Simulated assay, not measured.
Amino acid sequence: MTVTLDTKGIEEVINKLNTKFNERRVSQFVNSALNTAGRYAAVEIKNAVAGYRDTGATINEVVAGKARLRGGVRNIRIGWSGDGSKQRWRLVHLNEFGYTRNGHTYTPRGSGKIRAAYDNMQPKIKELEANELRKLLK
Rank of each mutant, 00 (worst) to 15 (best):
R70Q: 10
V49E: 07
I78M: 06
R25M: 14
Y106F: 15
H93S: 13
I114H: 02
G72C: 09
V63Y: 03
V26I: 04
T36H: 09
K126R: 14
H104G: 06
W80Q: 04
W89N: 12
G51E: 14
L137D: 04
H104Y: 11
T100R: 12
G56H: 02
G84A: 15
V43K: 15
N95A: 09
V49A: 05
I45D: 00
R24I: 12
D83Y: 15
Q122L: 15
R25D: 14
N120K: 15
E61H: 01
G9P: 07
G84K: 05
R77A: 14
M1D: 11
F21L: 11
I76W: 03
G72H: 11
K66W: 05
A116T: 13
I45Y: 00
N15F: 09
K16F: 00
E44R: 06
T55H: 07
I78G: 02
Y40F: 15
I114D: 04
V3R: 10
A48R: 04
D83P: 00
A64H: 02
A117K: 06
K46V: 04
I10F: 08
A57H: 14
N22T: 07
R101Q: 14
G9K: 06
Q122N: 10
E129P: 00
R88M: 14
V3K: 07
N18W: 06
H104F: 07
G72V: 07
V49H: 01
R109W: 09
H93Y: 04
K20V: 00
N75Y: 08
G110R: 11
G56Y: 01
R88V: 01
R39H: 08
G65A: 02
V92G: 02
D119I: 09
R70C: 06
Y52I: 11
K126C: 04
K126G: 15
F29M: 13
T105D: 08
R134V: 05
K135I: 04
T58H: 04
W89L: 13
R77I: 05
F21K: 05
R88T: 06
N31C: 13
N120W: 05
A37I: 01
M121P: 02
E11A: 10
K138F: 07
G65S: 02
V73T: 12
D6W: 06
N18H: 15
Q87N: 12
N131E: 15
S32R: 10
S85F: 13
V13C: 06
E127G: 09
E127P: 05
V49M: 10
N75A: 09
E61K: 00
E132K: 13
G82E: 03
T55E: 08
R115I: 13
L34Q: 00
T4I: 10
S81G: 14
N120Q: 13
L17S: 00
N22H: 13
I76E: 01
T58P: 03
